[in-house]
Nucleic acid binder design. Sequence first.
DNA 1: TTCCTATGTTGATAGTGTCAACATAGGACC
DNA 2: GGTCCTATGTTGACACTATCAACATAGGAA
Lengths: 208, 208
Amino acid sequence: MPVTERAYHHGNLREALVDAGLRLLDEGGVEAVGIRSAARLVGVSHAAPARCFPTATSFLAAVAAVGYGRLAAALTEAVDAAEDTLSAFRAVGLAYVGFARREPNTFRMLTHPSLADKSRHPDLLEASNRAFDVLREAVLRAQDDGHVAPASPAALALTAWSTVHGISALIVDDQLAAKGYTGDPDDLADEVLATLFLGMRPVPGPPA
Amino acid sequence: MPVTERAYHHGNLREALVDAGLRLLDEGGVEAVGIRSAARLVGVSHAAPARCFPTATSFLAAVAAVGYGRLAAALTEAVDAAEDTLSAFRAVGLAYVGFARREPNTFRMLTHPSLADKSRHPDLLEASNRAFDVLREAVLRAQDDGHVAPASPAALALTAWSTVHGISALIVDDQLAAKGYTGDPDDLADEVLATLFLGMRPVPGPPA
DNA sequence: TTCCTATGTTGATAGTGTCAACATAGGACC
DNA sequence: GGTCCTATGTTGACACTATCAACATAGGAA
């Protein structure tokens, strides 16, 4: 028997269940991910997940934590690919929206109402904070280079996060046309980010 | 028998169920609202709601629509109380955040993942649009008075909506401290809105 | 007065999460 | 080297949910 599979008596059941949860999420949306379905997919009894995940929401939290990890990776990649701190700041915003559009179900899982109280799920909180840190540090570096006003970095980062999250939510739920915007979602993301950057600029008015 | 109660054979069962749903929402959060619980609360059989709401999510949609109505009312009230168009624009942003803080469960219901596809729930879509329109028109009026850049109103309104929604989501889920902001949520809302207004200003840089 | 439809009821089915009791494999310890 | 002991998983049950089909009935239409 191969050691890589069916070795659930050795601790990789949790990982296998999370993988199954991600597949369920991808295929059937947030509603489709449950411990019994995941157990069925893994090929284990319906009560086995209870050992790894004492409650159903703790399972959701584990799946969402992976989602935040993917988001953090996407943001990090965008920052690393940028040439200067200002374009990095811009890139991280676009990467956030791009991630939401690429993985809408994952994006929705991140704000699942059952996971609203993140203090109950330390791993999820940490994964969320790690993704946020990528954006926060991009703001900090742009601030160091004088591209962003010398205000509280925490507030600025929260502003940026709020903006990109909000516009992503609208785009993912197809609310643009209903709200009177008929153009390309990417163009809107550009416009929204431009407004954001304008508001975060250091001085009241640079030359042009 | 009083005509106001127990007259469910005459068409007000739907309303009674929605009321029950709102109570369930308020007391037990988004997870607590279901058709069977609502039926129990109203004092009707478990399958009665099926006549008014063919599916469970259609019931959620009806409850959420009332939530959007409340939101629209709060925004309208804020706009009406303002003295000029610029302060009205500011007031509507603060009112959005204030509503989210006052009714966190209602706020979460508005973005419930089951309701992501609003095209399936015309009433919900309309209620959502109505709330958005209050903010959109506030932007338009501020633009007419020269307080906002002459860009696409739809894009500007979506930017503002995104920002206030994003910051509300973070505040409601108690994510401020975890994200490095230790101050008062209201102060943060002020800061975020200030940045938003700065970015939406008409010219690159007014005097001060 | 006689239907007919709108509105609820009853009962059944399939799915979910959670708990308690039981089985067992593998390492720990003497 | 043999004996427990614990971690891991199974089985079965319970309560809850949504959804469907079959049935009942009240009130208006013809």
